[in-house]
């Protein structure tokens, strides 16, 4: 937070509570992240795997959500494979192979090839929007025009059918 400046008019400097809170947050997050890097248990792995594999008979549900018998079979099979020591990747690769259920068995699209677009496009969109917004703010700041022209005021007044909002507290906050 941008609270490094002190306020001379106050008995307690403004940055102090922020510094204390920052310290507490760091400590709390440190405590809260202890032990989360332990490898997942088998049960957790089964839970994650069943949620990422599509139920072949139902519409858009994962095998974790579905109650049809084939989903139950797959759940049992995944649990067995995890017990046998197969990795998550091996299990996913097995189910998405063309001889089993095909690539659309995975609810997470592959990161490579055409499927990767679905991961990349939103990020690109957000990045473009951020750049556009930054440029817009730059342009607005550079234009230096903080007030509407008289013509604009007339337009606004006409549209609103009220006297122009010159009473806005715009002047107060300006440097």
């Amino acid at each position: 937070m941008s609270a490094s400046r002190t306020s001379t008019s106050r008995p307690i400097p403004l940055w102090l509570p922020w510094a204390i809170m920052a310290a507490i947050v760091v400590v709390a997050l440190a405590v809260g992240s202890v032990g989360i890097n332990e490898p997942p248990t088998n049960a957790e792995r089964v839970q994650n795997l069943t949620r990422s594999i599509r139920c072949p008979q139902c519409a858009g549900q994962s095998v974790a959500e579905s109650d049809v018998s084939v989903s139950r079979e797959i759940r049992r099979d995944i649990a067995q494979r995890v017990e046998q020591g197969q990795t998550d990747e091996e299990i996913r690769a097995y189910y998405s192979s063309d001889t089993v259920y095909g690539p659309d068995a995975l609810l997470t699209p592959p990161a490579d090839g055409v499927g990767g677009l679905v991961w990349v496009l939103p990020v690109v969109a957000i990045a473009l929007a951020a750049v556009g917004l930054t440029l817009a703010f730059r342009r607005w700041a550079a234009s230096g025009r903080r007030d509407a022209t008289d013509e604009d005021r007339a337009l606004v007044a006409e549209a609103l059918d009220v006297p122009d909002g010159g009473t806005e507290p715009g002047g107060a906050g300006r440097p």
Partner: peptide, 13 residues
């Protein structure tokens, strides 16, 4: 439609 491949996009995404 474009490639003929069938893929799924589900809740993990």
């Amino acid at each position: 439609a474009f490639t003929g491949d069938r893929i799924s996009v589900g809740s993990p995404f």
